[in-house]
Design a protein around this nucleic acid. Sequence first.
RNA 1: AGGACUAUAGCUCAGUUGGUUAGAGCGCUACCUUGACAUGGUAGAGGUCGGCGAUUCGAAUUCGCCUAGUCCUACCA
Length: 951
Amino acid sequence: MDKIYQPAAIETSWYKTWEENNYFAPSGKGEAYSMVIPPPNVTGSLHMGHAFQHTIMDTLIRYQRMKGKNTLWQVGTDHAGIATQMIVERKLANETGQTRHDLGRAAFTDKIWEWKEESGGNITRQMRRLGNSVDWENERFTMDPEFQQSVEEAFISLYDEGLIYRGKRLVNWDPKLQTAISDLEVESKETTGKMWYLRYPLADGVTTDAGDDFIVVATTRPETMFGDTAVIVNPEDTRFASIVGKEIILPLVGRRIPIITDEHADMDKGTGCVKITPAHDFNDYEVGKRNKLPMINVLTFNADIREVGQGFNSDGTVNSEINCFIPEQYHNMERFAARRAVVSEFEALGLLVKIEENNMTVPYGDRGGVVIEPMLTDQWFADAKTLAEPTIKAVENGDIKFVPKQYENMFFSWMREIQDWCISRQLWWGHRIPAFYDASGKVYVAINEAAAREKYSLSADVTLTQDNDVLDTWFSSGLWSFATLGWPEQSDKLETFHPTDTLVTGFDIIFFWVARMMMMSMHLCKDQAGKPQIPFKNVYITGLVRDESGEKMSKTKGNVLDPLDMIDGISLTDLLDKRTGNMMQPQMAEKIRKRTEKEYPDGIPAHGTDALRFTLAALASTGRDINWDMKRLEGYRNFCNKIWNAARYVEMNTDGEDCGQNGGELELSLADRWISSKLQQIEIDVTKHLDEYRLDLAAQTLYDFIWNEYCGWYLELSKPVLWNEEASDAQKRGTRQTLVRVLEVIMRLTHPIMPYLTEEIWQSIKTLAGVEGDSIMLQTFPIANLDKVDTAAEQDIDWLKGVITGIRNIRGEMGISPAKELSILINNGSDSDKQRLADNRNFLMKLASLDNITWLNTGEQAPMSATQLVGDMEVLVPMAGLIDKDAELGRLSKEIEKLAKELGRIEGKLSNQKFVANAPEAVVAKEREKIAQFKAAQEKLVEQHGKIKAL
RNA sequence: AGGACUAUAGCUCAGUUGGUUAGAGCGCUACCUUGACAUGGUAGAGGUCGGCGAUUCGAAUUCGCCUAGUCCUACCA
């Protein structure tokens, strides 16, 4: 073994071995345990968030596999409709200047498939490097023919049940991408806008009670006024009661529109009069439906003003009666230009009353980044309310649990208010909706044209054309948990692995994905008894991985870290290229460059997969975002090195030696019994933490045990046995065996988090440890054996540590070189101290670097010494020639002061009658014991202080 | 506007049912190339647990209010 841990050398080959031997596939034996990966975008690449989630999932699946479960980690990728289409459109524009319309639908989707082939391997390569033990043989892609079929089947059956419908509705429309999007894809941004107060003249010479021949309405979007079809006032509003039922003449257009009453008008807001534009505002749309108002669409699909509006009745049918006139100077005007133009015209006409600054939130498309328009279009919708109902119950009654639990509230509040889900998208990349239309526009839903003809008994002379729209990406990923297992076919796999056990994902897609998967699964999947099947039992919600200053990682900020760069390292030049290359806003490049040069002047060194995974696990406290800390990664890289070197030590001392594999008498030292005893508790703790998704605590437990107990104390304690020529074969055998077996168990305990290092070490020591097997990943997870718990040994070692630490403290504080061998004396020791001293003399001499220990009997005179107390026993280091008087006085004072402070606190407590009366006896007794002990110690130290001072 | 979460050492974070001398890593100080490891070892400094109040014999932990920050949902004619 090399002196320095070199991760790259061991990490590349083991993954290949595992994969080639098909260790990742379900074993077919034991209880099932399954997870699905949240399918990443097929053309994307993994970021730190993925690395984080994949580490958690891989740790869980490796742990369950080692526990003997029949494990499946379902892997695959998502076609990610809008995102992928945008990437390829941009690429096309950059390379040839063409748009997708220049190519046509078929040629363009071919281009996307090409791009998928080209870049789709990226993710899977990264996952392999991260050590993810997914079932590659059953990799799925949401656009695979089988998956496609599942999607169509789901759509058709929901349609046949009346849970999917088509209709003309107001939807969120992205004018840049020219598609409908769902509520969830809209991001609200806070901005300061303006509110314009406009005068609408009353028709027919009517005046208000105040004597005005006009009313005033307020709006933030004047350009939509071309589509106004009513003005409302509150039915209770006496100010306007007299003009209800009268009409106004819409300026610029000349259309007469009615003044009606509706609850929506708030008497205390604005002027109390509200203009209603049902085709361009969600509230107005509702008002329009309630009052059967016509709707006039005045915008084109890219949100310019139309030449003539489109009139509809409130039920969505065409209304050819209504006057849809739009003045010529506005034709094809961009929406914000039109806004300015309308305002100036109102001003010119003397109809602009005032302008107010107005804080408001404006909706933006999360992909296109432009302001969303409510747009009246024909779309497909899913009846989310009906679908949501059983999922709410499933969470309420605990069939599905969220970790951490507070996300359940978030889930409930959304699900109980859920709106119908717009599932059609005007894109080319995705699952084309299996719906066909005849010449009259009548719709037929079936898997293909032939099926449609048969299902609806259509004669051959009816021409059918398929719907041009595709389904929302989340519609298909909503089927992920069961469509990947073969649904709608009732496959064995589906039966074995569904519902899955744990879903690990980010809170940002609880609504997008988690909730949808629950709705889809519970509606479409039934168990044998016909009961709706949940997609998963537990949802582990992870936080976000942020940069060191707590900012979200994003390309535009230039603070993105690629997990592979943590693993393999990257030079500054390459890192700069990566961060500043191919930017949407090149002006940011210089800033990012400076920032990167400052943060990583030498690039990023290699740390290895295991260190990265351990770091992510250690940071994974539930319900909290992670601020990435490069120092932490370094620390855990050092931890890997520590383990590596401990293994080297073990190998050096056991390889070719008798470790008792073939029998022979064994004598275990106190240290051997102690470390074995401690190990049992660690096994219990790690198991508990992993079962409770506390990977951070599991990692912390392992770190502390391995570094401090095993390496820090036990390896040191093994030396006095192994290097002692007087030790017997049985003693050496006992220590060697303990050394190697404990290490072997540690490797298995740690393997789920750090697969590579543990496999490498395990392979080189398995024979010495007397175990057999091809790979650590197929070994059993350690189970505590309580027979090995040895409380006496643990107490003895605590005593030993106390003596050693006491002497080291004197050395440290007094500046005595560690190389200087000391003669110490023991005073006021009990019989058990004497026994312990006799048992542990070797350990003590070696670890405290002593050349002599003298036991003082009662009454024997001790030379002037520095003193450390271990219980009542005094450990004395003679001062002569070694210790400065003032330094020792200082040290003693410090100790005395500490004790005094503590004594004051406890005495206060005990003098409180209420405490003594009310606190449990054990607590009071404990305090009394402490006080006695501290008092005795204090007295001794004070006496010592006095003696030295008198010198 | 409603809700959730967070606030503990210089930094990043643990602290499970109230009783610990409040912990870890990194950083800092001093000393040390001792035969696994300087990606190391030993010792040490550093905290009125955001503020106020309540409950309790006892609060970092429970409750209320406040402050600061993050996020979500809704509304904004």
